[in-house]
Structures are given as structure tokens and as C-alpha cells.
């Protein structure tokens, strides 16, 4: 894998701040790991002897298992810690937890936390590399990378594509990371959703904003749906599930507004019948399962990139 630009940072805390070549370098590496992951023998030795801790302050099945598999395929010893239940209730602060883990001398910590900026804070207090696996409504960089890889493989390019992100942009770290990542790679990013679920001054992110699916999906190559949290469905941000689905749920009829060869994505877990109809989620245009596969490859690429900066690496 020589000849590729070296990922120049110790952590991966967000897509913000990465250059186009940083991102493309990670995607190229991930592309190689797709092949490895499809072999019978899936093991590499890149992280042999290294300790990876998955520190999740928020419950997650997919992201956590994806990081776990990625670490194990690279030969790391992976430990999962779910903190939501135990230490936080005992009054231990985030930084106490960080100090405790740091003393165990891990090489890489993967962190998910419900507060924006928490991973950034933790990264300043530990000696190892840190990967942000989602912090509040801020960033979820590996999701954006896996989405970019999925799109690149399906469409052959990202430059020039029209990519519409639909739904609860306001609370979505996936949306933020994707806006930055896809814009950096030359896509035209468009957002669509009810105004109550759009962040303030979101136009300044350099995106187009639409308030209805017909104009939002017009000419789209990729339709990326976002999950709407249950507690936001009944009156606080939108009136009801059925009204939300009526105007913003992706069904066959609305998908027809996009290009005929448009592809559909969703970071999961999906609320079928809320933001996406089952037949679309499982249909021929859906990339949802591909996204999950790319998740492992991208995370392997990230771990490998960071491992190059580890002591004795």
C-alpha cells in the first residue's frame, strides 16, 4: 500500500479538517480490505499485539460490532466497554473514565458519546489514538467514509453526483459528516426535510436546501435517508408518524422524482414505514446491505492508517 498519501493525523475525530486526498487515501485502502474481507482467510497482522478498546457511552449494535470485526480482522485484541450503565451512574466523569482506560495502555480507543465534542475532549487526555464513533449531533466520520465508499463503488465516482440527504438533519451526526465528506469529494449535496428538523443557517454549509421531496429529489443520483428518533415523531418536531411519512417518507412514488438509476441509502437502523417504505428499503435500488459491508472495510482502513502513527508502528 505504499505510494498512497500517509494519513497525517493521530486521531480521527471528524471529517472536518480532512483534505480530499486524506479522504481518498482512506477510501483506496478500504477498497483493498473489501477484497480481504471476502476471502475465506480474512486475517491480517497489521494490528497484531495492539489493544483496541471500544468505549461506547451510547448503546450501539451495528457500529460497535463493525469496529470489533474490523479490529479483529487486523489482528488486534479488542475489548468492548459499555459505559452507559455502570460508571456514569456512579458519578465517574468522562475524563475519569479516560484516565482509567489510558492507564491500561490501549493503542486505539473507539468512542461513541451522546454529547457533541466529548470525543474531542477525551482525545486530549489520552496517549493513544482515538476514533470518533459518533458524538452527539456533531460527527460520525466512519459512517461518512463508508457511505462515500459505497457510492464510489456503485456509481464509479462521486464528483458531480447529486446526493440528497433526507429527514432529521438537525439531530444527525451522519448528515453533518456526510455533508462535509461528500462536498469535499465534489458532489452536489442537497438536504430535504421539514424546517423544524433543519439546523439553523444550514445553507451556509454550502448545500442546497429543499422543503419538499419533489424538488429535493429532482435529478438526484443518490437518496440518503436518515433515521427519525421515536421521541421526535409525535408533536415536538413533526405532528405524527403518518404525517411525516406522507410528506417525507421514501416510497416508490417519491423515489420516482429522482433519476431512474438513483440509489437509496440508509445508515440504519431503519424505521420501516416512518422514513422509508419496506419495498424501497429492500428493493433493487437499495444499497443498505452494501453499506454495512463497506463499514467493516472502511474501519479497517482507518485503524490501519492510525496504526502507522502508533509507537513502534
Amino acid at each position: 500500500m505504499s505510494g498512497r498519501p500517509l494519513y497525517p493525523y493521530r486521531h480521527l475525530l471528524g471529517i472536518e479538517g480532512l483534505s480530499r486526498s486524506d479522504i481518498e487515501g482512506l477510501l483506496d485502502t478500504a477498497q483493498d480490505y473489501v477484497a480481504l474481507s471476502r476471502q475465506v482467510e480474512k486475517k491480517a497482522a497489521t494490528l497484531r499485539g495492539r489493544t483496541q478498546i471500544n468505549l461506547f457511552f451510547e448503546p450501539s449494535t451495528r457500529t460497535q460490532s463493525s469496529f470489533e470485526i474490523a479490529g479483529k480482522r487486523l489482528g488486534a485484541d479488542v475489548m468492548n466497554m459499555s459505559v452507559s450503565a455502570s460508571s456514569v451512574k456512579k458519578g465517574e466523569t468522562l475524563l475519569d473514565t479516560a484516565a482509567t482506560l489510558n492507564a491500561m495502555r490501549p493503542d486505539i480507543i473507539i468512542v461513541r458519546h451522546h454529547a457533541a465534542g466529548a470525543v474531542n475532549l477525551l482525545a486530549r487526555k489520552v496517549d493513544c489514538s482515538v476514533v470518533n464513533a459518533g458524538d452527539g449531533a456533531h460527527e460520525h466520520p466512519t459512517q461518512a467514509l463508508l457511505d462515500a465508499l459505497t457510492i464510489r463503488r456503485a456509481k464509479g465516482r462521486i464528483e458531480g453526483l447529486v446526493i440528497t440527504i433526507c429527514g432529521d438533519i438537525l439531530h444527525s451526526r451522519v448528515a453533518r459528516s456526510n455533508i462535509i465528506c461528500l462536498s469535499a469529494l465534489g458532489a452536489f449535496v442537497r438536504l430535504v426535510g421539514p424546517s423544524t428538523l433543519l439546523p439553523a443557517q444550514v445553507e451556509r454549509f454550502g448545500v442546497e436546501v429543499a422543503r419538499d421531496m419533489r424538488s429535493g429529489l429532482a435529478g438526484a443520483d443518490i437518496v440518503m435517508m436518515l433515521r427519525l428518533q421515536r421521541e421526535r415523531m409525535s408533536g415536538a418536531f413533526v405532528p405524527s408518524v403518518r404525517e411525516y411519512f406522507r410528506y417525507f417518507g421514501l416510497d416508490r412514488e417519491k423515489l420516482a422524482y429522482a433519476k431512474p438509476d438513483a440509489l437509496v441509502m440508509h445508515p440504519g437502523p431503519m424505521n420501516r414505514g416512518v422514513e422509508i417504505a419496506s419495498d424501497v428499503a429492500d428493493g433493487a435500488q437499495s444499497l443498505v446491505r452494501e453499506q454495512v459491508e463497506m463499514g467493516v472495510a472502511v474501519r479497517m482502513a482507518v485503524l490501519e492508517a492510525l496504526a502507522r502513527h502508533l509507537p513502534n508502528g
Binding site: E16, G117, D135, A137, P199, A200, Q201, R204
Partner: peptide, 15 residues
């Protein structure tokens, strides 16, 4: 403060 900075940081804003 609600606005672009808060939106980019993913922090809830006070208008």
C-alpha cells in the same frame, strides 16, 4: 448561540 457555529458543532442553540 443558535446559528451556523452551533449547527456545525452539532450543539443545540439558544436563539
Amino acid at each position: 448561540n443558535e446559528g451556523e457555529f452551533a449547527s456545525r458543532l452539532g450543539l443545540p442553540g439558544i436563539p
